[in-house]
Amino acid sequence: MAKDRALAKANAISVLGVVAPPPIHVASPHFEGSLASLFLCVKERRIDLRDVPLLPICASYFEYLLASPKINLEEAAAALTALAYMIERKASSILPRWEEPEAPPDEQLELPEPTIHEFDLAIEALEQWQQERAAKFFRAPGGGPDAYEVPYSLSDVSLPDLARAFERLLARAAPEPIESLAKPRRSLAEGMQAVLLALTEEPRTLEELLLPPYTRSEAVWWFLALLELIRLGRVSVSLEGDEPTFARAN
């Protein structure tokens, strides 16, 4: 410990640590003093390195190394570190510099004043036109018949007539039997076949066409098939009294 303290005291001028660089004397028009002092001045930016030639100093350093009978590696390393630092600083200082353009101001920070008042006239006009337009009535868009729908004839039978006939059909339906959940699903095509088989050329009422027993779901399935056949023009409908009658279309 005492030995370390003595070493530190002997190298008290060092700015790189406890070890001072070798006593190389620098003499130039702008600086005169030791290498350690030059390093300190450069580090504290008290001297412009561009005025101090570093090549002679480096040459002196090598001469010192070669001339020294016993090289102190620590001193040599300290000198090398100081010289390397100064060369880097000087190289950096003589590089050309570009003035970086100032970043444009953030638009978010400088929002322009709202200019909605410029549209006041237009907004008033729109309000007025909105009122005027409300007094005009046009044909509702999409209200026409579907061009791809085949027209079908219900003769003089109205939809309420059909609905009432269907209600009566449902009223006679038996309760649904308890079946497994995975019961087979009957298609509309099957229903249409069944209806066509039941139909004749003689007009008949629903009650005459679908004879009990049948369940509500069978009645629905059967009636939907009948409606589809009417839509396709395979079944003709007519009204006898209050009762719609159905027959095979010719």
Binding site: I116, F119, I123
Partner: peptide, 10 residues
């Protein structure tokens, strides 16, 4: 809505 509509229209 009229404000926005007017701005977009122009």
């Amino acid at each position: 809505l009229l404000e926005v509509l007017a701005i977009v229209a122009y």
